[in-house]
Design a protein around this nucleic acid. Structure first.
Lengths: 254, 254
DNA sequence: TTTGGCTAATTGTCATGACAATATCAGGTC
DNA sequence: GACCTGATATTGTCATGACAATTAGCCAAA
C-alpha cells in the first residue's frame, strides 16, 4: 500500500545542453526536471536517477547536478533522503511562489487585468511611511492608490508609497502595466519583500470600490519590497476580495 | 545620502569552529553571521568581508563560506551583488518564516498556549479529505477540532485530518503539546507544506468559540503537510482572529 | 566637462576528488 | 521468528582550482 513506485528515470531527456550559451548548466537541468515533474513525465513518488549517474550521463560534475536538483527541492517538488535517493513529492497541483505583483498573477491565470487610478500624487512621508521606506520624515514620496480589476470585476484596492526619486511615473504607465513592471523598466530589480497577511472588515468606501456588501471580510497584505542594494523601493497596503483572491505559500523545511 | 556605510567586518568573530563535531561548518558560520546581523553587530547596509578572504581567515574553503552566506541570503537578510560584494539588507525587524505550528509561534512570542479539544474521533475520508491526504476514499482518518488560546484568549479554531495510522493519538497529548510536536515525537519529520491563506466571515459557532461578534472577518489557512518521503501527514483548515494573528512571509527573488 | 576604456575587486559557475552519514537489504545467528 | 551484522547505495559535507561575468573606480582623451 504505502510502497513507493520505483519507476526508471526517463532516458530520452537532457540530451541537448547549451554549453557555451549564457544560461547556466544547472539551470538548464533544473528547468527540464521541473518541466518533467509538472507535465507528469515524472509521476509523484517516482525516484530520480542518483546524482552521480545523472552527472555522468549528462557529462556534468556532481556539484552541478546537485545544484540543479536543489533548486527543485527548494521549490517543494522534490525530496531528498540520504541513503535513499530523490523522489517526486506526492501531492496534486504545484504552483510557484515568487516575488510578483497582482498584475503578474492575473496575467498568468489568463485574466484580463485593468486598473482604475484613484490617486497619483507627491506626498511628504509621515512617521509610518518614513520608517517603512527608510527615508527621512517629511521627505517627498510618490503616493498612489489604485483599484485592480480582472475581467472588469474589482479584485483589490492597492495603496502604495515609493521613494521620491520615482516621482515622475505617469498615470499612463500605471494603467497599462503593473507597478512592478514599471519599476523594472526603470532599472529597479526587486530582490526581497516582507509581507504581512491578515484580515479585517471592509470600510464603506472599500465596499463600494470592490462592489461588495458593507462590512464584508477583506484579505489584507502589507508589503515592503527591497531592491538588490537593500534599499526599500516600495511600501504597499493592499486589500483583496477574498472570494476572488487568496495567497498560496509553499514552505520547505531545511 | 544614498551612500552605503562601509564598515569593516568585525574581526573578533568566527574564531572557534567545531571541526570534528556533528554540526556542519557552513551551518556554524551562517548561524554566527545571522546572529551578528540580528544583534546589530553587522548594521544594515554594512558590507561583509569577501568570500575568499573570509575563507582564508577561517581556514575554510570558498564553497563552504559561500554556502554559509547563501543560507542567509535565502532568509532575506543579506544581498549579494557580483562585482560589489555582500551587504546586509536595509530594513527593520527580521523574523524567520519556517514550517511551524501555531503552538510553536505562540511559545516563541512568550505567550502561554492552551487548547480546548472539541473533537477527537476516527472518521472515514470523504472525497475532499482523500484527495488532500492522498488516501483512498472511505479509509479511516483521525479527525480533530481544537480551539487554541494564548494567555487564555481564543486565537484560532483548527480542524485537522490525519492518516489512519495516527489513530491512537490521545487527547492528553493534544492538550499539552502542539500537533506538530506530537507528530515529531512519533517520528514524523515534516518537510514540505502547501498553504492557502484567505479570509471570510465567521459562522455563528466560530464567533462564539473565538469570542468575537457575529459575522466578523476571519483569517483562514488551509494546509497540507508532507513528510520527508513525500507522503501527506496532515490536512488542516484553520481560522484565526485577525486582531490577534497574522502571517509574515519573506520572499526572496533568485 | 564628459566620455570612453582599462584595471581591480568580487561574486557566479563548473570540474574533480575525497570521505562521512544514513538508509535499505540480505544473510546469519540465537 | 526475532535480532544482530555487514555490504551496498545514496546523499551530505568539504577542499582545491580555474575561469567567466559584472561592477566600481580611476585615468586619459575628446
Amino acid at each position: 500500500m504505502s510502497v513507493q513506485e520505483e519507476k526508471a528515470f526517463p532516458m530520452g531527456l537532457f540530451m541537448d545542453l547549451e554549453r557555451s550559451g549564457p544560461i547556466p548548466l544547472y539551470f538548464q537541468v533544473s528547468q527540464r526536471i521541473e518541466k518533467a515533474i509538472l507535465s507528469g513525465e515524472l509521476p509523484a513518488g517516482s525516484r530520480l536517477e542518483n546524482e552521480v549517474a545523472l552527472g555522468q550521463r549528462l557529462g556534468l560534475s556532481r556539484p552541478t547536478v546537485r545544484r540543479a536538483i536543489q533548486e527543485i527541492v527548494d521549490k517543494g517538488l522534490l525530496v531528498r533522503r540520504r541513503g535513499i535517493g530523490t523522489q517526486v513529492v506526492h501531492g496534486q497541483v504545484t504552483r510557484k511562489v515568487e516575488l510578483t505583483s497582482l498584475y503578474d498573477d492575473l496575467t498568468n491565470t489568463h485574466k484580463v487585468p485593468s486598473t482604475h487610478l484613484l490617486t497619483l500624487e507627491s506626498q511628504p512621508a509621515d512617521a509610518r511611511i518614513s520608517e517603512r521606506l527608510g527615508v527621512e520624515e517629511g521627505s517627498p514620496t510618490l503616493h498612489l492608490r489604485r483599484v485592480r480589476l480582472a475581467d472588469d470585476v474589482p479584485v483589490a484596492v492597492m495603496e502604495n508609497w515609493l521613494p521620491g526619486e520615482f516621482i515622475g511615473i505617469e498615470s499612463n504607465d500605471l494603467v497599462a502595466h503593473g507597478l512592478y513592471q514599471v519599476l523594472r523598466s526603470r532599472g529597479v530589480t526587486m530582490r526581497v519583500a516582507r509581507q504581512h497577511i491578515g484580515a479585517r472588515k471592509s470600510t464603506n468606501e472599500e465596499s463600494a470600490l470592490l462592489e461588495i456588501e458593507k462590512n464584508s471580510a477583506l484579505l489584507t497584505m502589507d508589503r515592503t519590497a527591497f531592491d538588490n542594494s537593500g534599499r526599500a523601493v516600495e511600501f504597499g497596503q493592499h486589500c483583496y476580495r477574498p472570494d476572488l483572491y487568496s495567497f498560496e505559500v509553499t514552505l520547505v523545511e531545511k
